[in-house]
Design a binder for these strands. Sequence first.
DNA 1: TATATACTTGAGTGATCACTCAAGAAACCC
DNA 2: GGGTTTCTTGAGTGATCACTCAAGTATATA
Lengths: 190, 190
Amino acid sequence: MPRKPNFDREDLIKRARDLFWRRGWAGTSLKDLEAELQMKPGSFYAAFGSKDALFELALKRYASDGADRLKTLRAEHGPLKTLQRFPAMVIGNEDAPAKACMLSKTLLELQARKHPLAEVANQYLLGMEAQFADLFEQAQSAGEISRAQSPGALARRYQSDLLGLRVSAERNGVDAGAIADEIAKGLEAL
Amino acid sequence: MPRKPNFDREDLIKRARDLFWRRGWAGTSLKDLEAELQMKPGSFYAAFGSKDALFELALKRYASDGADRLKTLRAEHGPLKTLQRFPAMVIGNEDAPAKACMLSKTLLELQARKHPLAEVANQYLLGMEAQFADLFEQAQSAGEISRAQSPGALARRYQSDLLGLRVSAERNGVDAGAIADEIAKGLEAL
DNA sequence: TATATACTTGAGTGATCACTCAAGAAACCC
DNA sequence: GGGTTTCTTGAGTGATCACTCAAGTATATA
């Protein structure tokens, strides 16, 4: 009986993610979304419920894409090489809506208001860090790096370096590629 | 002949800075400012001209306070010790409106819209980096660190680490103090 | 004290915010 | 093709946005 929606939901979420990623939560209005997604308000609210609900879907998609990129890298390289290549990869994509991490942008924008989406972003950041910790542990098991520091501590620092790199990449007049190289080189010394 | 304004302009700018720092540009409404500064719209606009104009004053105040803190540290310690203590200092102030850097928050929030304030923030970040470069050069001259890397490259990386640290400090469940210690320790190895 | 000169007040501006809903259009089953 | 169900449309909701301005008030000089 029902009529099918004439849009690809996953594609809409991706486009919304890119818009939110670039412009942020407050910087993206419903009008912007309607224009980008080619949806009238009624369809939009029938499909997603609210701006916040779509933002959360966008965050989820962002986080899982990031995790997938890391796993793809891991499939081709060892754990250390994966960790070394990842920084240059995240700032190297010219098609990306922004260099900075969407999770950190969301956290910085919404944390002070205690907006629920800030905590969602925080959780995904913790998830990424856990992935990094796994890779560091694997690198230690493979003998690629020493066991002088715990995988958790290494991941914490790596995540921090990555966040700094990605903020730096957003700046004008800063050679972020050089910073990415230094991060990669720093891992060799472990 | 004129009547004096019954407020302390510098104090108002400081309070506005704290509000903008915590909540961001879009997250701070005129109503918020009126409440915090105890000013009616007419007085506000007579005194500052616009929300953006006050935000710019707040950024300037933020940047010069940061520069002052660095100089104060430098007056008591050598260049290397100054660079080593600064990270723990910026995240250690419990009274600060936020752990993250106001300049980077502004950049991330407004860069995509090409808002003029994003470029202002970018310039102040470059100014901070120049200060760091000076300190690295002094540390090299004093023989505290090697000349293997240029002061500019060292400052670029240090700034990036600092930005990452301050984003990390905004997160829940992350021991930012430990990261600050690692940054300080990393400088010894230069 | 008279007057000039600000500063302060607060209701009000049009624009935009996220969001709603009734009505019409399209696709499915029978 | 009839009937049901969902999707789409787009004008419209009240709230809030940054900002204005005329009227009132306080303080300075003369």
